[in-house]
Amino acid sequence: MSRRRPLLSVFVIGLACLVGMPLYYIVVNTFKTQEEMVSSPLAPPTSLHLDNYLAVFDQVPLAQSFGNTLYVTAGAIAVQLFVGATAAYGMILRATLFNRVFGVLLLLAFVVPGQATLIPLYRTLVDTELVDTLNGLVFLYAGGSIFCFFLIQGYIRTLPFEIIEAARIDGAGVFQIFWRIVLPLIRPILVTVGIFQTMWVWNDFILPNVVLSSPENRTIVLQVYNAVGEFTTDWPAFMTLSVVVLAPMVVFFLVTQRHIVSGLLAGGVKG
């Protein structure tokens, strides 16, 4: 198994380069003028042409969109982890028949596609004047709590229940046990779930596209989508915007890679 296989190397890396071609294409064209891009789209840039970056930062309110996305993502993840963790702990504490039936109902809710509830929820946002607000978006993302609940519950079951018993005997209250013992113990799964949900919320297009309408509320994905209209003819500017928007997610991925792969191994992930 350990001998080198140059043929395999060449073949797989060649294929990988083909797959990575769009990435190369968008990065390389951010350093070109429009004429250069049209005449030689795949050639490496001839000079370090940074005008596109200056233009994009100048024309698109990127800081605002990043702030919006950060606010929505942080809010959504906080709510989801809180609801998921409390629910998982409550289920473990009281495995009554009522609660077990409730657990099955939650599983059914988890399988329901978002499309099935989208129209009434949009209507609710309109009625409560939460439409076109970032808080309205966070409210909708709270639905992701149920996914968190299942993953956290799977993890909490593997913990030794004696620790909680011991804390109880030592006189700790129910909420104290949750904050001081359970939450620190389940931190690994909170990190994994948080990473997956972050990638979902940060990259999501459908809910911001439905809920948000004013330009100052746009998340970054929405900002890129709208930029296509503004930059129809200026392709390098669009590519530059894409690179600027994709960069944080790539960095996030590089930092959290280890957790993502272990999450995949645990078998509890969605695409």
Binding site: M199, N203, D204, V221, V224, Y225, L246, M249
Partner: peptide
């Protein structure tokens, strides 16, 4: 790599 960024942005590219 293609699984990391938003599919919406990749669709535009």
């Amino acid at each position: 790599f293609p699984a990391i960024p938003s599919m919406a942005v990749l669709g535009l590219v």
